[in-house]
């Protein structure tokens, strides 16, 4: 009897664990089945080469490129902000800062990661954009630059925290050898520590890129809703995520081609983040083996 109970409990627990697999299967099934409907009506070739995305207009075009360029430019700006700042913070906390300072600053930076993204969107629209408009005359109230910068600020703690872990994990002897040769902290950090922790730092950047690509609210609020094929950061752009939000806010009939476009956009987004996740997972595995 006792044994039976134990069995039942274990099966119940396993079921809960299995539910996570079901979630993944569900996501893939939903994205594929609805996109299937989309691609039976729109040529795949047009989808990846047409330079216009206008499913909601009378003159319909279904080219994903404008959404990709919008996503790309905002992500690029955010990484340009987050990588140098985040990596410098990681090096500073690891090599320079006194221990007490590090213990206080790390949780403070984590607050940045806890703020809801809709709040960052408000920040971009009401603080950063007006500020940028002073510096760059003629800048519109919706632009890729402002959204990208704010997104960069949001992912700083992600880059700094993961990079710091990577720097912390390298063997102490490596750094001691460098100091023993008379190197300064700067030389030790950039010639020894950073190269040794390179894979961990790259993983942090890849995860940050994945986060930036999938971020929705900042771009929906501050970047605009114009799917234009452009790489000019001053333009209003529309990202994949912002498009899904735009359609979701309107009244779109279930089963219509408009409805299916958000799944086609969604599967594109999913594919990118899936690839990035797996690269980082693979790199993490590889670099863990090296030091253990």
């Amino acid at each position: 009897m006792r044994k039976l109970n134990e069995r039942i409990i274990e099966a119940g627990l396993a079921l809960c664990g299995g539910l996570t697999i079901l979630t993944t299967v569900g996501i893939i099934y939903v994205l594929f089945s609805e996109s299937w409907g989309f691609f039976s009506r729109v040529f795949f070739f047009d989808f990846i080469t047409d330079t216009e995305w206008t499913p909601l207009f009378t003159q319909k075009h279904y080219g994903i490129l404008p959404l990709l360029s919008g996503t790309f430019i905002v992500t690029l700006i955010s990484i340009i902000v987050a990588l140098p700042v985040g990596l410098t913070i990681a090096i500073f906390l690891n090599e320079y800062a006194p221990k007490g300072f590090r213990q206080n600053v790390k949780p403070a930076l984590e607050i940045l990661a806890a703020v809801p993204t809709v709040v960052y969107g408000f920040f971009a629209l009401t603080v950063v954009t007006p500020f940028l408009q002073v510096i760059i005359p003629g800048l519109g109230s919706f632009n890729a630059l402002s959204a990208g910068i704010v997104m960069g600020i949001m992912i700083i703690p992600m880059v700094s925290s993961l990079s710091e872990d990577a720097l912390f994990a390298i063997p102490k002897t490596l750094k001691e050898a460098s100091y023993g040769m008379g190197a300064t902290r700067f030389q030790t950090a950039f010639k020894v520590a950073v190269p040794a922790a390179a894979s961990g730092i790259i993983v942090s950047v890849i995860l940050a890129i994945g986060r930036a690509i999938g971020e929705t609210m900042i771009v929906s609020i501050a970047a605009g809703q114009q799917p234009i094929l452009t790489l000019d950061p001053r333009d209003a752009v529309e990202t994949i995520t912002a498009y899904i939000v735009q359609v979701s806010l309107g009244d779109v009939e279930h089963g219509s081609l408009e409805y299916q476009t958000i799944f086609a956009a969604g599967i594109t987004l999913f594919l990118f983040t899936f690839i990035l996740n797996n690269i980082s997972f693979w790199m993490k595995k590889k670099y863990q083996e090296r030091y253990e």
Binding site: G210, V245, I262, G266, L269, N277
Partner: peptide, 9 residues
Amino acid sequence: GVPSIIYGL
């Protein structure tokens, strides 16, 4: 690592 909007879909 899946974006939250995908969970929405």
